[in-house]
Design a protein around this nucleic acid. Sequence first.
DNA 1: ATATGATATGAGCAATAGCTCACTTTATGG
DNA 2: CCATAAAGTGAGCTATTGCTCATATCATAT
Lengths: 220, 220
Amino acid sequence: MAKRRKMQPILRKRPEQDRSRATVEVILDAAARILVRGGYEAFTTNRVAEKADVSIGSLYQYFPNKESLLGELMRRHTIAIESGIEAVAPQAQDPPFADVVRAAIEHIVRAHLVDPELHRVLSETPPLGKLDWEATFAERLAARVKAAFEARRSEIVVRDLDLAVYVVTRAVEAVVHNAATERLSDLKSGVLTDEVTRMLVGYLTGKATPVKRAVRAAVG
Amino acid sequence: MAKRRKMQPILRKRPEQDRSRATVEVILDAAARILVRGGYEAFTTNRVAEKADVSIGSLYQYFPNKESLLGELMRRHTIAIESGIEAVAPQAQDPPFADVVRAAIEHIVRAHLVDPELHRVLSETPPLGKLDWEATFAERLAARVKAAFEARRSEIVVRDLDLAVYVVTRAVEAVVHNAATERLSDLKSGVLTDEVTRMLVGYLTGKATPVKRAVRAAVG
DNA sequence: ATATGATATGAGCAATAGCTCACTTTATGG
DNA sequence: CCATAAAGTGAGCTATTGCTCATATCATAT
């Protein structure tokens, strides 16, 4: 008598043959393209199936519901970001504070350069909006930033560290996020990273940073 | 033979009696409450009418379509913000640069303290998201900020003024916007304004600002 | 060949959306 | 009064949504 309700696995059926794996891929591609072009409004399962040139039945053989499609899209996007992030070299010991700050910013920039359009849509999409990875990513980042600040406490003039971490992370995330759609070239060239780095270092240490170019100019 | 298509006035019919004016008000109230509670997902015309305790027919007598409901809501919100902003005193001549910066920030803070929840939902709502006033508001603000920067060019160490304006406006807007839902008390108390002011002044002038409390502690 | 499971199809269902319109009720003014 | 206009009603139309399921096709192994 137990009513079956929202208790399905993430993927209804594991695709085992090459043919079906391809089908899943085509579906996800179509989903991403529709999301990017028309936003969540245009994102309907029927349209996705049509654009993927696959019957609606096939879609529902692998995805138990609309939300799971979004979920898988997000999962993959997260993975793409995380793997791209691993390229960040571990810090040499006792580097200039400015370099630490810059490294963190490049962290975020890199994340936003992985399929920026899809990134934007996913992060603003109603049912999942700012969910999962954005939360945990932000948390991990905040922890990391705070640790870095504490390690350099003597160089930092700001009183309230927690507040500083909050202000800094939101500010950077937002500037980068916006720049990903409004000033993509500045993002890619590193000009924006320079600027934001100077802002943070100035704010935190109370000293102006000499305007010097980054060691490596481009990030993506 | 001309097909009638999306060409209706903003308000289908002007309410002329007190009774109908009240009806319009009740509808808008319900709309706002539904938006705040359930987001755009829950925002359906039938539900709005139901919550307003008004027949769906009455709703459509004053609002030609769903979008116009959102539009009117936004229009009123804009007006509320703008009138609240006028309270900002005109600057004394040649005030300290920090004061100018602080005034601009308080500008934005004030805007976000007018019904913060509704503000958030409206700014993230799909069909209008970041439309109209957010665009023009940002433009006017950017122009104002740039003018202020130019007037103080000698005190500013940043090279690229346009880039600086971009970084500054996005950063402040985002920090304040996020704080409106995550750190409302810090926003109201002025602590956050202090912090952001210090960040900007440090960034722009290259000098650390002495940590002094604002003249008036609270904004809203 | 043939049996078996994996894969694919698409007509169509139940639910809900935005919205209309024929109609009733309430207010106003001569 | 009563005529006219304003205001209010809600059953229900049309379109679309997410999603199912009976059926058909393809792949593989014996």
